[in-house]
């Protein structure tokens, strides 16, 4: 009896919501309505742009995280890459555009090395992705503390600052970068052989290998891609904050995973897309903005955030099961 009712409910959800995106669009509309009712007059395009700028760093990191999860891995080092980038970006640029390329080059190099280091540990030393990237995270944090001795200094180049705070036709630069990177990711996944191989490796790595796919190369690409995107997010944040902080990367590991899951991607890999992940990052940030407007404290925010993530992921799960 109970099982039948459950099945009917699932069928109903399935028929009504043919795309997993519908659920996310629905959630967004709900949140706009809630904001409209609770804080009348606060719903404006400008406010949306501010939320999108706040979401951009998380959004960009989540794109990389999504690709790593698609190949069947997980990247816990994203947050510490953001922190490291922030630190080196600020310290190397010394507030001048003269050092811009030098600073960016340095950050890029660090990101590629970290991504490569992760994949070497996972592929050649057989360390589980969770453990390997956890180690990387800890090592990077350690390096940052040693490098700064706890007191970071410096400031970002003016061009980076405008990247973090400026607008193009009322759209924040960082939002534009986020959208462009999302498009690039979508094109890679949907139209290229690389994208096809990413899904194949994540879906069944052994079968991929036996179909002539170099799964090691694909996995290496995913971790380097993720590290580079985290680095870009780190640069944008540096421009926005204009200081380096040893706490800046903190939440990005959990939140990027949450964004990927809210997007409806499978944590086991091989399944999912990018648009959902973009929505995921936006929704999480938007939720925090609304809670802040309502004057809810940190603890309350965490609880609400947890409940929302749980609800969306559970709904996605029910949809996928049937």
């Amino acid at each position: 009896m109970n099982e039948n009712v459950m099945r009917e409910v699932i069928d109903m959800i399935n028929k009504r919501i043919p795309l997993k995106l519908t659920l996310l669009i629905f959630a967004t509309i709900c949140m706009v309505l809630i904001q409209y009712i609770l804080v009348p007059g606060s719903v404006t395009l400008g406010q949306f742009m501010i939320v999108s700028r706040q979401a951009s760093a998380l959004g960009i990191i989540a794109l990389g995280q999504a690709i790593v999860i698609l190949v069947g891995g997980i990247d816990l080092s994203v947050g510490s890459i953001v922190m490291t980038t922030n630190l080196f970006c600020i310290a190397s640029m010394r507030g001048s555009n003269d050092y811009l390329l030098y600073g960016l080059g340095l950050c890029f190099l660090i990101a590629v090395l970290v991504g490569f280091f992760n994949s070497v540990g996972i592929l050649y030393l057989g360390i589980a992705p969770f453990v390997m990237t956890l180690c990387t995270m800890t090592i990077l944090q350690g390096i940052c503390y040693v490098y700064t001795q706890g007191a970071p200094t410096g400031s970002a180049a003016p061009m980076i600052r405008s990247l973090g705070t400026g607008y193009f036709c009322k759209i924040p630069y960082s939002t534009i970068i986020w959208v462009v990177l999302a498009f690039v990711s979508i094109i890679i996944l949907k139209l290229t052989t690389l994208g096809r191989k990413i899904y194949a490796v994540g879906g069944n790595s052994r079968a991929a290998e036996l179909s002539g796919i170099n799964s090691k190369a694909i996995i290496t690409f995913a971790y380097i891609f993720s590290a580079i995107l985290s680095m870009i997010a780190g640069v944008i944040l540096s421009g926005y904050l204009n200081i380096s902080s040893l706490t800046v990367g903190g939440d990005y590991v959990n939140n990027s995973l949450a964004a990927v899951l809210i997007g409806g991607n499978a944590i086991s890999g091989g399944k999912g897309g990018i648009i959902g992940v973009v929505f995921g990052a936006f929704l999480m940030t938007y939720l925090l903005a609304i809670l802040t407007m309502l004057g809810i404290g940190e603890v309350g925010k965490l609880i609400v955030q947890g409940i929302v993530i749980f609800t969306v992921v559970a709904l996605q799960g029910i949809r996928q099961k049937s």
């Binding site: 139209l191 052989t193 194949a200 879906g203 069944n204 052994r206 499978a266 091989g270």
Partner: peptide
């Protein structure tokens, strides 16, 4: 176990081993 990609479509399962024959500068000739 190591043949099919169970969460993929028929088309992608058939095409996977011969991607190199339809590779146009990295893009798939769909």
């Amino acid at each position: 176990g190591d043949g099919l990609f169970l969460n993929e479509t028929v088309q992608k399962n058939i095409a996977i081993a011969s991607l190199h024959l339809r590779n146009r500068l990295g893009f798939i000739d769909t």
